[in-house]
Amino acid sequence: MVTLQLVPYAEIEPLTSVGRIRKLLNIAKEDKIVLLQGRLKKEEEAELIQATMEEIDGAFKGIELAVINPGSESSDMNPFQKIRTNVVNTLLGDRQGLTVIGPATVVRKIKKDPNKIELFTEEAKKKSKKKRR
């Protein structure tokens, strides 16, 4: 069974970078998939990877990470759309988009395309292997 835990941005907003990373990583280490409203700062994403590496052991093998932020990565926006996106970004900050963090023992792969996320779990892989047999 796969457990998803929704984390509203308001829950991490008052925390320091270390606090945010700790909170998200602790949830992932409980074998839950984190669905974070919004996204971390770029530097925090790198710190999350560093913190993950420090904690890898026999039981915890790391994370799968994906950030989806529809519209922000589109290069074919007209000037009006770009201005509107910039205004929304300024007002909402990092609340836009969705961050998915899954423990590697549960989530095998996250495919981003770039406006949708496909999540492949280890359980599904095992089932498909059994079916083939």
Partner: peptide
Amino acid sequence: KDPYSQVNITIIGNLAA
């Protein structure tokens, strides 16, 4: 390979930052 992997985006985003 798929270029949209989050590792690629995080590396390039951090360099840009």
